[in-house]
Amino acid sequence: MFFDWSAIPGALPILWQGMIVTLQITLVGVLVGVLLGTLLALFRLSPSRLLSWFSATYVTIFRSIPLVMVLFWFHLVLIPLIVGLLFPGQRLELRFITALTAFSLFEASYYAEIIRAGILSVTKGQLSAGLALGMNRGQVMRLVILPQALRRMVPLLLTQAIILFQDSTLVYVINLDDFFRKAYNVGNTVGTLNELILFAGAVYLVICTLASGCVRQLHRKLTVLAR
């Protein structure tokens, strides 16, 4: 079993370019996902039946289909459609935008559930206490419930971010060059595909293990504070 790792050092600049794409997708996916997810969670919990129904449908649909299919769907349908409407006649290189949009909208549904559960986990007594003091629903939500809910949610939100980081590899199906795709391409070109795949796996393993270890520490600290 002879491994030839020689291609890797020289390829590092290319791989780093791919990693930048991966990190960008992850970051945008998390930020937009959390914002949109919070909105969806609030819709779901709002007294308005229309908003509640909309949020529930959105979340149910995105949670019952594979991410791969969402990527296909955006790549083949929605993005060309929107671009066709906005910039008729042009063919733009849209894979990156597609990935950002798809991930953001997809992850939003998962974040919505985490946030909703977090809000619900704050007991009704808190809401009652806030209202009894004369605050309106909005104030109670903003000043009393969300701060508490956030403390419980942060570890879960971060864990979901790590999952997103791993799922970013799926941009493979729309031929976008993220870290893994770059590694694969280099491996194919140079002829040491196995080594590059294993190297990429090792990189992800190290990053994710460290990250989830940090999240665990954070979770422990937050739980102690909550008592």
Binding site: T169, F180, L193, Y204, T209
Partner: peptide, 15 residues
């Protein structure tokens, strides 16, 4: 849990 699913799949299929 810390290696992406796609990478694991490629490892099983190629490596």
């Amino acid at each position: 849990r810390n290696i992406p699913l796609l990478v694991q799949l490629f490892i099983w299929f190629f490596v």
